[in-house]
Design a protein around this nucleic acid. Sequence first.
DNA 1: TCCCAGAAGGTTTTT
DNA 2: CCTTCTGGGA
Length: 633
Amino acid sequence: MSVLARRVRPEDWTPIGVDELEANAMTVVRSTGNRSVIAGPGAGKTELLAQRAAYLLQTGTSPAPQRILAISFKRDAASNLGARVRKRCHRQHAGRFDSMTFDAFAKGLLDRFGQALPERWRPSPDYEIMFPTDRGYRDFLQQSLGAPPKSVGTYADIMALTVKQFERRHLFGSPLPVDGWSEPSPGEWAADQYWQSSLHGGKKSHLSFPMIGRLAELLLRLNPMARDALRLTYSHLFMDEFQDTTQVQYDLVRAIFLGGSTIVTAVGDNKQQIMRWAMAMDDPFAAFDSDFKSKRTPLYNNYRSSPELVRIQHVLAQALDAKSVKPVSKTSATISGDSCAIWDFSLPEREAERLAAFVASEMKVHDLGPRDFVLLVRQKAADYAAVLQPAFAAAGIPLRNEAGQAGAIMLQELLAEEASELIISVLRLAMTKRAGRHWTECQEALGSLRGIGPDDEIEQDRFAKELDAYAMRLGRDYPTPPAGPGARKLIDDALGFIGRSRLVAAHPAYGQGDWLEKVLTSAATHLAQSASGTSDWTAALDSYEGLDAIPLMTIHKSKGLEYHTVIFVGLDDGAWWSFSDDQVEATAGFFVAFTRAKQRVVFTYCVRRGTRTKIATLYELLAQAGVQTFKIG
DNA sequence: TCCCAGAAGGTTTTT
DNA sequence: CCTTCTGGGA
């Protein structure tokens, strides 16, 4: 029996699952025109998008069969937003919300319409994805290119091209000319050579994601029917973390939606712009406001950090934007003593011991888990992990470098893989007691892979029995977590039940190359590692998912996350070597690190690692905010 | 194969 | 800035 999703009148709609939204947020939720929302950390930007989606879907402002498209940069951001909408909306409504990454969106367009591109720009249907490096561009410029035609320039002109300029300006700087460049400069000629060899140089084309983005933009420019179909499909477009938008991405969005009736909402924070060195636009909000005639709406609340931390944050915010307005903290302090301090150590080993002791004691005093803390570093997480890990282990707290490798794949990436998630879900169900929560989760996920409708009670019932029998059998076969080669056997067993072909059908990426095999191998390696030293399944799975460990990561990786206590290790010139190259971006990184914290921030300094003269301005900002330095030892 | 000087990397996403 | 890599020459 299917329950129809109820439609709510716009004036009766209220936010779901949260206590309140500030007035401006409600205005944006109900807005009927293009909006840019610039708001600081913890203002609830993602939540705003989730609420707006609920509003549009539930009130019929975005009526079926129209859909909402939400574009994020990272997969976890995209799936997080999708999950929030599903939690707040009826299935029928949430089914009209498409949350994906920029790259997945562009690739989808190229895969659907790419064969209609003119021959010159048409990739082979079975093109492969490549991830070019500076090195690759350099080799291309120096080795694969001969002398250009006389009309273009000389060999020396080509040799004078720098990798950065080649990539940013010539290769991806502007939309592709349909018929090629008529009077190419040396840079344009080299870029064209690169494009043509990537597209037509071998049996298969080899494309990077920026290339896919540019080709997608070109094909929608040339194909108004496809463009109009997208405009009709999507009544609304959301863009998250808009401050990090690249020119390629912006041009694609503009080519599709500028001049159409799709209503666009872009949210982000200029003060957290830390990707400019990776081709983010200088001021995408300014371009958006002017092109899309959007109205800018600020948010003033901070739902993350204590009043004291918000006060200090505001000092940093003003250094990044003199006009920034102090947000209102909606959280109260739960700790006593300093909310922020600088700890000055003599030796890194001493530092590691003291931090481990501090975390261990805080966990007891405030009843916190290891995941309530984070160790942040500027760069080279592995080097810091090597020193910190033994000290934390000695204090009984596992420490995990989130950027560490599990076989061929980065840990963080593996854990986000659907294959890994499904397998762990099955194992939780089969191996642990009181797996009630995992039951629903697992049955839903595996059932949908099998094409069993959520309302098909007979089939759901039958499948529940099958799942139960399988879980029983697996539990008997593997009473303890396998630390050796048994891990791979178990992974294959679980995958067999999930259904390899069903998984590939639902996730096309697993059909490409040997990606699925890589994921499975890494999962097995990581499971074996997690199982070593324990015979308890819950402990092994917690370790697999990192629930038992304090995370260590770079500032960049921490963007969008939040923790009770942030410990930034290494506030010195060495770690911040690039500070003077781009003071604004470096200060933005400092701001991102600081604003991950809900209750406390600790900065550590250690003479051994370097001086603190180059980054004196950061220390001055902290001093200005009243943050004190303590000599620890 | 080794040595040295100079260059490059570091901070990242993406099927 | 400091560490690691690379390429040319011995």
